[in-house]
Amino acid sequence: MSTPPIIQLDEVHFTYSGGSHSALSAITLSIQPGEIIGIIGANGAGKSTLCYLLAGLIPSFFNGNFSGTATINDKEIANIDANKLPYLVGLVLQNSRLQLSHMCNTVYEEVAFGLENLGVPREIMLKKIDQALKMTGISHMAERSPYTLSGGEQQRLAIASILAMDSPVLIFDEPTSLLDPVGRREVLSVIMNLSKSGHTIIIAENHLEWIAEYTDRVVALEAGKILVQGDPKEIMSLPEIQSSGIGWTRFTQASALYLEKTKSGSPNRLPITLEQAIHFFQTEQGNHGN
C-alpha cells in the first residue's frame, strides 16, 4: 500500500440536525485509487449517509453535527467548493426517474446539463458527452427523450451524466434495487467496466452474492459504526454479519445448517460464493464418505 489513499476518513461522527442518534460514528476508512468497495448493512445502518459523506454532501448539503476528518485527494471534503467537487466525486442514487434533471429534452442534453452548469467550453463538452455515452452504452439513444427510457437505461443515463464531469471516484447508493433483472445486469456490467477503466467505485448494495463476487473489499455497517471490513469472500460469513441484520448468502446459510445437522466440527470459514460452497460440500461429502 505505497500509493496514498484517494479517500481517507478518520474518526468521522455525524448526526443529522434534529436527529436523536448519530448516523455515523467513529468511521475510519481509507480507500485506494481503483478499488471497488462494497457497503453493506441493514436498512438504517448508515449506508446512504456514508455515501453522502463520501460524495462531499456532508456537511455542506445535509446539515448536522460533524466531527473528524474526511479527505479526497488530501483535500478536506468540507472545504472543496461546489465548482470543484464534481471533478472529484460523483453520486448515483436508487430512483432512476427522480435523477433526471427535469430540465432537458434529450439524453444528450441530460448528460450536458452538469457540464453546462460548470461552464465547460462547448468543444470540450461535446467530447466528454460522447465519451460518457459510449462508456455507458447509450450512444444510440442520444436523441431520445429521457422519459421514454427503461429503468436500466435511465440509470445508465444517470451514470453517464456523472461520468461526463470526469470524476475519478463514483459512488452508487443501491443503484439496482428498483430494476428488473435485465436492467440490473446492464447497470452492474457498466459499473464493472468503469472499475476496469480505473475508476474508484464505492457501491452500497443489498445483493450480497454480487458484493461477494465482485468487490475488492466490503465495509459492513451496523448502527452507524463499521462492524467489520475486509475481503468479502472471507468476512461475509462471519456470525456478526448474520446477527447484525445484513444476513448471509443462502450458500452460507446452507453450509451452516449442514454443519449444525451433521454435528460436524465447524471449519475455519463458511463458504460465501457459489464456487466456495461447491468446494465446501464436496470436501464435506468426501470426508463423510471416508
Binding site: 464534481p86 460523483g90 442514487l93 434533471s101 446539463f113 460548470l118
Partner: peptide
Amino acid sequence: LILETRAFNA
C-alpha cells in the same frame, strides 16, 4: 440532492 450532484449550484 440531484441538482447538487449535477453542479447546479456551481
